[in-house]
Amino acid sequence: MTEELIIAGFGGQGVLSMGKILAYSGIMQNQEVSWMPSYGPEMRGGTANVTVIVSDERISSPILTIFDSAIILNQQSMDKFEAGVRPGGTLLYDPNGITRHPKRKDINIYQVEAARLASEMGNTKIFNMVVLGAYLKIKPVVKMENVILGLKKSLPERYHKLIPLNEDAINAGLKNVVAVQELH
């Protein structure tokens, strides 16, 4: 199994930390992982993206131009990365703020209203964990128990009290992902 994923959105949405938690979860189940951020003069509100690879084999290139899956969290990223999804691959997005929805006919498309769900749960910071939950429902590349271990590893100890909240957010995502287009 090899999953090549891009997570793209605004800086401050937790794109990079979501990728990190996923990568740590992969390590927890003895998989090879890589996490490669776009880095630059980036800031809160600017675009941010990270490519994550989780694989049973040694990973060659950590740089990707074609993705098995794309998690898209703003319009700029939709415009940039929809075309990069492998035919038959998967695109997951939050429709909040999206004005031009994906048009591809050869990929699986899912939505999760993560921004709304996080806001209803009273903490917009757990947005990225709602998205992660939705992604893991479609692509169970890592086991839930390993995600919790991954969270523990990537969060500083003083934030461990927030793990149950993050777990709730993941579960909200799991339950609320909607298929827009599924290939058969």
Partner: peptide, 10 residues
């Protein structure tokens, strides 16, 4: 280089 410096791996 920037790739090896910035990426995370185990």
């Amino acid at each position: 280089d920037g790739v090896i410096g910035q990426m995370m791996e185990k």
